[in-house]
Design a protein around this nucleic acid. Structure first.
Length: 602
RNA sequence: GGACCGGUAGUUCAGUUGGUUAGAAUGCCGGCCUGUCACGCCGGAGAUCGCGAGUUCGAGUCUCGUCCGGUCCGCCA
């Protein structure tokens, strides 16, 4: 007896029928994936989330055969039939259910369907706009079903792991208050407080810290977060974090637990054993890879040559080499001498995007021939001796090309760091597999253009030094933050938080948040820190990015059921949309301009 | 806010130096077909060339503007 009695219309999933069901009578519900009409026999491929099975109708079942004749793609059917083995000659080895088929006895059309707006098969590339407009159709495609089912397995595995580690799932508000830090807030007007607004949370950061103050010790939540900033392939205005916070654990313990979580996740879901997670200091990551999220699958590294360039006249290199805030670095690309002048021009344009004012290069044709074996427009500006030392340092070999960046260190790191990724991609130098690491010892602050300080992580991150050290030299102070990086993507980041009011106030002072503003915006946090806040810290993973990597997608839109376009709109629902003047009046809102007739609808 | 790429049958694309009736594939519709599985064969329908100006005897094609989608920079504690 089926536990749900006759409420269940189907006896099996299409994709789950095997040779063990031979001679069983089954009832299937699904969509018509394809119909092949041979006149005297009709094949229907019936699809549900578990897969596809072939159903055969022949004229013996006249009424049902006639119905099968009327059926079209994406009709929703209920089919009852008998499972039978296919004859040797008709077995389809490319199909999971290819050894069997269902001989249809009864066919009920549960719903007809219009011709789909695009073909759902795997052979047609469909533009993303159409896919998003008919997302409910797009999600029927096998590829999307797989991705979302894997996403579900991932969140389930995460929940099971954290539950097993005695973490508590606690929800935090979606309607909260705006904070002056960080990204632009999504705002929600309050009807009951005219002229005031809620903000949607950029993350549950403060709430989870307060839960630590409350004694919940180990918290997690799979939480929606909202940031009103411009979109990218890996950025949506609403996205999901695996949010974690603990009390009485230091950073090493937190990294251990979360690393174990990711490791078990990959084993459970992908059957992959991740390699060791090396710990790399932020400074080393910037020095060697020009990035705080290095892709360790790529065997190219930046090498500083400032000391050598301090000995040349060539101003373009000499200037940044002498400047403490400057950097001259080389990127040796093994086998890159085959890159043409035209391609170098393309790379030059590419690094210009990051502020680089040029891209110097040296091709190594014959290293044994010394300076004669090198080819470059900049050699004439350098003494042979310096060039020779540089080749030695870089370990240059025949067939290499060396690119140079010389500018402010930030520009050089960004430009050569990006070039490293681009060239590796173009030349197929990105290794296979998974390359995780922890990046640690981040600076507390970085200098903003106005000369002030902004936090590298967020203003609640604990510094590794004392208040005095912090105030004396904010630019040199390190934080107790850590990022998990996988294949060049920042999967998650976290820190030990400040749990003492004095320290939190000191950080606010450095960030130029005065006492009044601190009290106004963060008074509840400062107060809480006085009522027995335990040492605490945590981490948040970007679930969408994690799933994207695990399914091999190139955009997080492909692992989100209903994502937004780059302009942060939904082409299916047409959100955002206008609202009635009545709604606006209730919210005490008047639009600044009546944007013609469609500005509001009555 | 900025740079670049794209927008032509339902879909994916082609469209030459500005020149006759805008093509292909696939899908769709009709007919035939009892073993196909991206079935096959025959026939048919299907286009506001994103939108608006401009240049020209003539614009899918050139120019300007605009909208939409995408990649990236800025932005994203």
């Amino acid at each position: 007896m089926h536990p749900y009695g006759n409420q269940i219309m189907r006896s099996h999933y299409c994709g789950a029928i095997t040779t063990s069901n031979i001679d069983d009578t089954v009832t299937l519900c699904g969509w018509v994936d394809r119909r092949r009409d041979h006149g005297g026999v009709i094949f229907l491929d019936l699809r549900d989330r578990e897969g596809i099975v072939q159903v055969v109708f022949d004229p013996d079942t006249d009424e049902h055969f006639q119905r099968a004749d009327r059926v079209r793609s994406e009709y929703v059917l209920k089919v009852t039939g008998r499972v039978r083995a296919r004859s040797e000659a008709t077995i389809n080895p490319t199909m999971a259910t290819g050894e069997i088929e269902v001989l249809g006895k009864a066919l009920e059309i549960l719903n007809a369907a219009e011709t789909p707006p695009f073909q759902l098969d795997e052979y047609t590339n469909v533009g993303e706009e159409v896919r998003l407009q008919y997302r409910y159709m797009d999600l029927r495609r096998h590829e999307m079903q797989e991705r979302l089912m894997l996403r579900s397995r991932i969140t389930t595995a995460v929940r099971n792991f954290l539950d097993g580690e005695r973490f508590l799932d606690i929800e935090t508000p979606i309607l909260t208050r705006a904070t002056p830090e960080g990204a632009r807030d999504y705002l929600v007007p309050s009807r009951t407080h005219p002229g005031e607004f809620f903000a949607l949370p950029q993350s549950p950061q403060l709430f989870k810290q307060l839960l630590m103050v409350s004694g919940f010790d180990r918290y997690y939540q799979i939480a929606k977060c909202f940031r009103d900033e411009d979109l990218r392939a890996d950025r949506q205005p609403e996205f999901t974090q695996i949010d974690i916070e603990t009390a009485f654990l230091d950073e090493q313990a937190i990294m251990d637990i979360t690393e174990r979580m990711i490791r078990e996740l990959f084993r459970d879901v992908l059957d992959v054993d991740l390699p060791a997670f090396p710990h790399m200091r932020y400074s080393e990551a910037m020095e060697r890879y020009g990035s705080d999220k290095p892709d360790l699958r790529i065997p190219l590294e930046l090498v500083s040559v400032d000391d050598l360039m301090q000995q040349v006249e060539f101003k373009v290199f000499r200037g940044p080499a002498d400047d403490p805030a400057g950097r001259v670095a080389a990127l040796k690309v093994t086998g890159g001498a085959s890159i043409s002048r035209k391609e170098i021009d393309v790379y030059t344009d590419y690094v210009a995007v990051f502020g680089a004012r040029g891209l110097a290069w040296i091709k190594v044709n014959d290293i044994a021939a010394g300076i004669e074996g090198l080819q470059s427009p900049i050699l004439k500006f350098m003494p042979d001796e310096i060039v020779a030392q540089m080749m030695e340092r870089l370990g240059a070999a025949d067939g290499d090309i060396i690119f140079f960046g010389a500018d402010r260190a930030a520009v050089v790191n960004e430009a050569l760091g990006a070039l490293r990724l681009r060239v590796a991609q173009d030349l197929g130098l990105v290794g296979e597999g998974w390359a995780p690491l922890w990046v640690v010892d981040f600076p507390m602050f970085e200098e903003d253009p106005a000369g002030g300080w902004t936090p590298l992580h967020h203003p609640f991150t604990a510094p590794s030094g004392s208040i005095d050290e912090l105030q004396a030299k904010p630019g040199e102070c390190l934080s107790r933050a850590y990022d998990m990086v996988l294949n060049g993507t920042e999967l998650g980041g976290g820190s030990i938080r400040i749990h003492q009011r004095e320290m939190q106030e000191a950080v606010f002072r450095i960030l130029d948040i005065d006492q009044e503003e601190a009290q106004e915006k963060f008074g509840f946090l400062l107060n809480a820190l006085q009522y027995g806040a335990p040492p605490h810290g945590g981490l948040a993973f970007g679930l969408d990015r994690l799933v994207m990597l695990m399914v091999g997608a190139s955009s997080i839109r492909d692992v989100i059921a209903f994502p937004k376009t780059q302009s942060a709109a939904c082409v299916m629902t047409n959100a955002p949309g206008a609202v009635s003047t009545q709604q606006l009046r209730e919210l005490n809102i008047r639009l600044r301009q009546n944007s013609s007739e469609d500005g509001t609808k009555a």
